Computed example of a mutant assay.
Amino acid sequence: MKHHIRRRALAGVIALTSATVLIGCSSSEGPSASEDAAAIKDGAPPVGSPVEGTIWVANEEGGSLSAIDVATSRVVATVDGVDSPHNVQASPDGATVWAVSGHRNAVVALDAATLELVGTQATGAGPAHVVVSADGQRAYVTNAGDGTLTAYQTSDLASLGSVRLSNGPHGLRATADGTTLVVANTAAGGVDVVDAATLSVRASIPVGSSPVQVAVDGDGEFAYVSLAGENAVAKVDLDGLKVVATVAVPSAPVQLYLSEDGTTLLSADQGTETAPGRTLSVIDPSEMTVVASIETGAGPHGVVMDPTGAMAWVTNMYDDTVSVVDLRTKEIVATVPVGDKPNGISFSALSIPAASPTLAEVAVPDYAEADAGAEEGHEGSHDHG
């Protein structure tokens, strides 16, 4: 697949201090610029930060992916040409970056070092999220438009089959051993528990109103589910197949992230475009209580944590920014401008080996258009006998 790479200077970082400047908002329905106060710093990471790597961001309305250098909190690369990327996921080794193209019904794999297109493949209708198995051998995509989950072989993006799920599959996560996938079905009000090897549904569990994303503990015993319709997060017993606890959060939650040691659960409380939330809730998953609330930008949507649990990053959907959070102090230490309507976000331990910021453009086939053409042709053949 052809691609073109060129270089450009990119925006620096905006970070918080006691002085204030204005940050623009991407939507006229969102809060005014005067409500977004921050001060300019030099983009340096917090003192004592143990983290290096890259944060990948899916800018859904910008049709791009942004790569933020963890050490400097600066955008160091942008990939254009991925139409309507709702979600992005770095592979476990960080070498490949995966994304979905919602408008083109495509899953996309990029080389994280060169930003070259490794390959694409057709998905079902309306792909929502993509995850990669812990061994890096498989990728899984939820297709919200046709209620399915599709598995792919990561080596060549060959489809390994699909399974029909409950209505409106969206976010998903795998258990640590890779044997099970837990999928949030937004329209169905439940989660499906899927056997990853056979692509069969083991159980469907009612959880509440508008579940969006899940997090799964290391033992595969419990899943945590964001309930956007209830402004709450639920804890689900995967053996007992039932909700065992819930905790309220300030606004409609979207993405969740559980620390590797299982002691901290983060909830990005997005709210709505007309009433955006501004909170990252820090939850004790054992007690299901909110232990801290960290103010973010407008509409926190995606959230990810580094493996040490020291740092987190949050996409602010209505600010077009990413908040950098020091979880040790529970403070926002930097705010990074990215593309239009940032949604999904992923951490990679690998830094991009580039001497200067890079802009890449990739060409993704429109599988949605091809599917529509095939359906028209199929209907036409019936019309003619």
Score class of each variant (00 low, 15 high):
residue 4 H to E: 12
residue 6 R to L: 11
residue 14 I to G: 07
residue 16 L to R: 12
residue 19 A to T: 15
residue 28 S to A: 13
residue 28 S to R: 10
residue 35 E to G: 08
residue 37 A to H: 11
residue 42 D to R: 14
residue 44 A to L: 01
residue 52 E to S: 15
residue 52 E to V: 15
residue 56 W to P: 02
residue 56 W to D: 02
residue 59 N to D: 15
residue 62 G to A: 10
residue 65 L to F: 07
residue 65 L to E: 04
residue 69 D to E: 11
residue 69 D to T: 08
residue 73 S to M: 09
residue 78 T to S: 10
residue 79 V to K: 11
residue 86 H to Y: 11
residue 89 Q to P: 02
residue 92 P to C: 13
residue 99 A to D: 04
residue 100 V to C: 00
residue 105 N to G: 11
residue 108 V to S: 04
residue 109 A to P: 05
residue 110 L to Q: 06
residue 112 A to L: 10
residue 113 A to D: 11
residue 113 A to P: 00
residue 117 L to D: 01
residue 119 G to Y: 11
residue 128 A to E: 10
residue 132 V to L: 02
residue 133 S to V: 10
residue 134 A to Q: 13
residue 134 A to F: 09
residue 136 G to A: 13
residue 137 Q to L: 09
residue 138 R to N: 12
residue 146 D to S: 08
residue 157 L to H: 13
residue 158 A to G: 12
residue 158 A to T: 15
residue 166 S to I: 01
residue 167 N to T: 06
residue 168 G to W: 02
residue 168 G to S: 10
residue 173 R to C: 01
residue 181 L to D: 00
residue 182 V to C: 00
residue 182 V to E: 00
residue 186 T to E: 05
residue 190 G to Y: 02
residue 191 V to G: 01
residue 194 V to A: 04
residue 199 L to H: 02
residue 200 S to L: 06
residue 201 V to S: 00
residue 204 S to L: 04
residue 207 V to I: 03
residue 207 V to E: 01
residue 209 S to F: 03
residue 210 S to K: 12
residue 211 P to I: 02
residue 212 V to F: 05
residue 216 V to E: 03
residue 221 E to V: 10
residue 229 G to A: 03
residue 229 G to I: 01
residue 230 E to K: 06
residue 233 V to W: 03
residue 237 D to S: 13
residue 238 L to P: 01
residue 243 V to A: 02
residue 249 V to L: 03
residue 256 L to I: 06
residue 257 Y to D: 09
residue 264 T to Q: 08
residue 266 L to M: 03
residue 267 S to K: 00
residue 268 A to V: 09
residue 276 P to W: 06
residue 277 G to T: 11
residue 280 L to S: 05
residue 282 V to Q: 01
residue 283 I to P: 02
residue 284 D to I: 03
residue 286 S to E: 13
residue 287 E to Q: 13
residue 290 V to F: 00
residue 299 G to E: 12
residue 301 H to M: 07
residue 303 V to Q: 05
residue 305 M to A: 02
residue 306 D to L: 02
residue 311 M to S: 05
residue 312 A to Q: 03
residue 313 W to Y: 15
residue 316 N to K: 08
residue 318 Y to I: 09
residue 319 D to W: 12
residue 320 D to Q: 14
residue 321 T to I: 05
residue 322 V to K: 14
residue 328 R to D: 02
residue 329 T to P: 03
residue 332 I to E: 04
residue 343 N to V: 12
residue 345 I to P: 01
residue 346 S to D: 00
residue 346 S to C: 09
residue 350 L to E: 09
residue 356 S to T: 14
residue 359 L to E: 14
residue 359 L to S: 12
residue 362 V to G: 04
residue 367 Y to N: 08
residue 367 Y to I: 15
residue 371 D to H: 12
residue 374 A to C: 05
residue 374 A to E: 15
residue 375 E to Q: 11
residue 379 E to A: 10
residue 379 E to V: 14
residue 385 G to T: 10
